[in-house]
Nucleic acid binder design. Sequence first.
RNA 1: GGCCCGUUCGUCUAGGGGUUAGGACGCAGGAUUUUCAUUCCUGUAACACGGGUUCGAUUCCCGUACGGGCUACCA
Length: 500
Amino acid sequence: MRLRFAPSPTGPLHIGGVRTALYNYLLAKKNNGKFILRIEDTDQNRFVSGAEKYIQEALEWCGIIPDESPFIGGPFGPYRQSERKHLYRKYADQLIANGSAYYAFDTPESLDSKRKEDPNFIYGHKVRMQMRNSLALPEAEVQELLANQTPFVVRLKIPEKESIAFSDLIRGAVSFQGSDLDDKIILKGDGWPTYHLANIVDDYLMQITHVIRGEEWLSSTPHHILLYKMLGWEDKMPHFAHLPLLLKPSGKGKLSKRDGQALGIPVFPIDWVSNNDHFDGFREKGFLPEAVINFLALLGWNPGDERELFSLSELIDSFDLKNVGKSGSRFDIEKAKWFNQQYIIHKEPQELAKLVLPILKRHQIDADLNTAIAFCQLMKERVNLLEDFWTNGYYFFQPVENYDEKMVRKKWSIEFRPIFEHYLSLLQELVEFTAEKIQALTNEFMELKTLSPGQILPVLRLGLAGTMKGPAVFEMMELLGKERVIERMETALTDFDNMS
RNA sequence: GGCCCGUUCGUCUAGGGGUUAGGACGCAGGAUUUUCAUUCCUGUAACACGGGUUCGAUUCCCGUACGGGCUACCA
């Protein structure tokens, strides 16, 4: 079994594209087959530099690693269509020779004006004999045009009486009438093939067995099937499966770059930077690749039971096209965040620390690994995104920026001051500054002064973190260390006095 | 407009001729917790509409509505 993902390097890979790649990858791996990455760069006008590298990096971040690609090669290379240009022409010629395709000399301008006078204009059986092509023009004229290097395209001659039916692995029976179809261009004026030709030739040559692609290709599938027949490759035709599209979180239409901008949600796997725009990806927003993959996999597919959390290898085991839905899925960032939270919670603190260290560094904090590990251990159940480690826990690394004044006023009263000063002096004498010892000391102290936890703990929390949210206060104190705890509490008590 | 595809809680979805239509996210409430979060429990909420077929349709068929895709010398 051989599957491919065949993007065009026209910009950053959309998250929907990642899902398509993922499904191809999963099906290939499940069947011990190969997953191939092929770059479809036949449109020179739309080429965007950096896009190809982006695709490679994005897939790598997601863990979707091709067995054959332009970067690592393989037995069916090259894997970039621009490097295969010489291959396509002969198949176009073959189709002309057997009467399945023809030369067309119409200028883009003449086609434009045809479309203007008839919005339903289709370059097909009804009009082809009125156009300037090798079917309508006398043979001698055609030869002359060709000899004079007149620009031409090659069009597929669609048999209008034929009904093209096929079984889509996701949608079941789908059929089209030849009479509705247009004579698609397969070779452009610049000598490059269009998607339709290049795609079929390459899938055939690369022995692709299954084509899983977006629903936007469903309407050109009859052309592709016809191409297989006309080229005599019908018995080698792959199975087709058309995926429903990803829809925007609310409102109409499919998920777009604009949604990312408007809603502040990532629509790309990793960040995209070019001279005129910059988009953060899931990676930059603090998502774990495992979470993104898991979320994406479940957007349109289900395992058939009620499991939700899947590693990549579990996805490989469970994946089946039978369980892919037919309707488009809305992109819900809240669910994505939930997956992320789950993965953060289940990740080892040492693994997390490796991801959190660079975030701390961005905030000019140079923490050592052990501190970062302890920090992650304390915080991991309290974050959704990686960046939350900083926003919700910055006070472990620098002074409190602001206090929750409302809570301070509620919990603090100026006459508590001697009590806390006493408490701090006891802390000062504590030899082993561990959560356990601090807790023992605190309990003893509360008993001595007949204080309740509610009177002392919130004040400590507020003083050390500025907020009521956070890890267990004794754990917090241990990680902060004696010096910082005492110093921070002393300044806090003064601040509190000023607030109340 | 034409062609093609689709439609179960707000969202992701399971199911399928007779079910209290199940799960998850979210939201609400509760338990645990010194706080927050986690965890656990409870609640909230859906078969687009109209005709058939049938003893019986959410499930099958046909329409309608709505949504999506395509309709380029783009992929």
